[in-house]
């Protein structure tokens, strides 16, 4: 019974922390883009515009809900909902930290450890495409449909190379459970040391894969709320699309955990810490890493001009896919030569 209560609390905590991060990643994005473009950025609501997400939220909740004529109302609403759902349910398998002990009982800081954790993540990511497609189609708007088709075709073609770059890592760890993958890295070295190419491919793909989502909702690009005509959720109003998009960025930030390990903590220091303190440090380091990746996304997004669609496709299919295949091959050969293959 206590384990059930703990899990419910953990689910709620993960949900609210994710929502909070999604909320403030909108603020961070606008501030960062402002710094890069020599603007001030949001500075009216609260100190440094820190209450801006709250003000935006109130505005969006109280705004009149618009549904375009001739659109399918149910699908129109459920499209961004799916995008958000898929982003949220990935949190279920992420090991946030080590075990915590409360009142003599030990609980893992992970909602559930399924033995196909990596496959689960990829399944969820592949379903995320529907959020975009359905949202784009349901508004019965040609621009939305074109945007949706472009964004989702980009997403699925990048999924393949992304999966292949992970396969090389799974070959080495020999397990699909996220908990074990993280534990192995905590005991030894981060997988990034063994698989630098997979890491680079994976992160490049994450970056590009998220690109179409990044500008979708009410014009984040120029820091105003002007709607961009190439967006998928062109006709959408309300808070869900915006959150869904930022969630997605966040979700893929988690996946980096696979390759980076949780915390490369100096071993002697670890021994002196109580389990609870260690779990706290691990969780903090985990979130710092997520923030680091989110920052990296924004940094690249606002520095480098967007690739054209055909350039993106060429890069994905003709460069990154062969590279990740090569990586699998090299990994196999090295594992065979070093006798790790039995």
């Amino acid at each position: 019974m206590t384990i059930l209560i703990f899990k419910v609390i953990l689910v709620l905590a993960v949900f609210s922390i994710t929502m909070l991060i999604a909320m403030y990643s909108t603020w961070a994005e606008r501030k960062l883009s402002a710094v890069m473009q020599d603007r001030v950025g949001p500075n009216r609501a609260g100190p440094m515009g820190l209450l801006q997400p709250l003000a935006d939220g109130i505005k969006m909740f109280t705004k009149e809900e618009l549904t375009p004529e001739l659109s399918n109302r149910f699908l129109f609403i459920i499209g961004p909902g799916i995008a958000m759902l898929t982003a949220l349910i990935t949190g279920a398998v992420i090991p946030w930290g080590g075990d915590v002990s409360i009142g003599g009982e030990s609980f893992p800081l992970q909602i559930t450890d399924i033995n196909i954790g990596v496959l689960y993540l990829f399944g969820v990511v592949s379903i995320g495409v529907y959020g975009i497609m359905i949202g784009g189609w349901a508004s019965n708007n040609k621009y939305s449909l074109l945007g949706a088709l472009r964004a989702s075709s980009q997403m699925i073609s990048y999924e393949i190379a992304m999966g292949l770059s992970i396969i090389a890592m799974v070959m080495m760890t020999g397990t699909l459970s996220l908990r074990e993958i993280v534990a192995q890295q905590d005991a030894g070295f981060a997988n990034v040391l063994y698989q630098p190419l997979a890491f680079l491919i994976f992160h490049d793909l994450r970056l590009r894969r998220n690109e179409p989502c990044a500008f979708r909702p009410a014009g984040m690009r120029d820091g105003t709320h002007r709607r961009l005509p190439h967006g998928v959720f062109f006709d959408e109003t309300g808070p869900v699309p915006v959150c869904g998009v930022h969630q997605h960025v966040h979700l893929v930030g988690h996946l980096g955990q696979l390759l980076l390990g949780r915390v490369q903590f100096p071993v002697p220091a670890r021994a002196g810490l109580s389990p609870n303190a260690l779990a706290t440090v691990q969780t903090v380091v985990f979130f710092l890493k997520v923030f680091g990746f989110i920052f990296l996304f924004m940094w690249v997004r606002w520095t480098i001009p967007r690739f054209r669609y055909d350039q993106l496709m060429n890069l994905g299919w003709k460069v990154l896919l062969p590279l990740s295949l090569l990586n699998i091959f090299v990994t196999g050969v090295v594992m065979y030569l070093t006798g790790k293959l039995n």
């Binding site: 399924i114 033995n115 196909i116 496959l119 689960y120 990829f122 399944g123 592949s126 379903i127 495409v129 529907y130 497609m133 189609w137 449909l145 088709l149 989702s152 075709s153 699925i156 999924e159």
Partner: peptide, 26 residues
Amino acid sequence: AHFLAAVHIIVYAGAIMVLFLYAVMM
């Protein structure tokens, strides 16, 4: 059959049906 379930979703729901939807929407 965990593996089969996950792959069923990734391949059928995640890839094949997306292509179907393209064709239908286009």
